[in-house]
């Protein structure tokens, strides 16, 4: 049972702050590190893998600082994001080489076990350069678990996988987590994370935006204020009707230079508002021409969590 602890960790590169005052504890089980691209996920994983020193704060594994300590790799496995490996060798030779680099007592047995776990025995004697993206991902996974590590860090492991491979890896991470290992993987897709991660840490723009189980994160995301842009047959009447609704907290009637108007609505309760809007329109005899949610990108969803 191992815990990776980050205490008030910041990391900057020149003027750019990649990670800003992050405190989190990653314990046994599967943890998802969720955030849009550029949120600092890879920087965080690099620090947890001991390749990068925090500019401030501390990153430790069971109390031991991780940076520049080669001995930690006996307990830590890393699946890097980049695909390149030593591709002039076969999958078997590469996993075996990794087992030998770990100085395991029986490297061949360890390699066989790891390749079996990722289900690559059938293709193990082919050169890595002939592998598909998903197969390379599995061999990368095998090299990371060959020494039976207590901590496994995976940087965007689902990238480029087809749905079947994705399910297979999800099952595998699940099993490894159930065995009491500390598993952390990064992703920018909520659906991916919530299927396997017992716990989710959300990063946005270098900051730790939220943390909890997926139900909590889901709720935070769907219950945030939603904004809509609406065009209708009578915008002014619609605006006055909307503000009378409990689920709306703000209305703005915007008229552009040509005289055509739109209604901007801030809804506090997403599902209640979506139900109420058509009813109130028909009650007032207003025809809805267009209802458009404003700014639904992942970044803006996450930004809300940070601003909270």
């Amino acid at each position: 049972m191992s815990t990776v602890a980050l205490e008030q960790v910041s990391r900057w590169f020149g003027n750019v702050v990649a990670v800003n005052d992050v405190t989190m504890h990653i314990g046994p089980g599967v943890t998802g590190l969720l955030g849009p691209n550029g949120a600092g996920k890879s920087t965080l994983i690099n620090m947890m893998a001991g390749f990068l020193a925090p500019s401030a704060g501390s990153v430790t594994l069971d109390g031991r600082p991780l940076y520049r300590d080669q001995e930690i790799y006996r307990e830590v496995g890393l699946v890097p994001e980049r695909e390149e490996m030593y591709d002039a060798v076969t999958g078997w030779q590469f996993v075996l080489a990794n087992a030998k680099l770990h100085k395991l007592p029986d490297p061949a047995a360890a390699a066989r076990r790891a390749i079996g776990t990722v289900d690559m025995a059938a293709a193990q004697d082919r050169d890595i350069r002939t592998y598909s993206k998903g197969m390379k991902q599995r061999i990368k996974m095998a090299t990371a678990i060959v020494h039976d590590p207590a901590v496994l860090l995976l940087d965007e492991p689902f990238n480029g996988m087809d749905p079947r491979q994705r399910l297979h890896l999800m099952d595998l991470l699940h099993d490894l987590g159930d065995q009491g290992r500390t598993i952390l993987f990064s992703s920018h897709i909520l659906e991916e994370v919530e299927q396997i991660a017992g716990r989710i840490e959300v990063m946005v723009s270098g900051r730790h935006a939220a943390s909890g189980d997926f139900r909590r994160i889901r709720r935070l995301m769907t219950q945030r204020p939603h904004q809509y842009t609406i065009r209708s047959s009578d915008d002014r009447a619609l605006a006055s009707a909307v503000i009378a609704e409990q689920s709306a907290s703000g209305v703005e009637l915007v008229t552009d230079k040509l005289g055509s108007s739109t209604v901007h609505v801030q809804a506090t309760d997403f599902s209640a508002f979506v139900h109420a809007l058509p009813q109130l329109a028909s009650r007032h005899g207003i025809r809805l021409l267009e209802v458009r949610p404003a700014d639904e990108s992942l970044e803006s969803v996450f930004s809300y969590l940070v601003a909270r």
Binding site: Y73, P80, R82, E84, L101
Partner: peptide, 15 residues
Amino acid sequence: DEGSIVYLLAKPLNR
């Protein structure tokens, strides 16, 4: 360049 050096560096090996 390719980043595959990480497989050597993420090991308990003297640099």
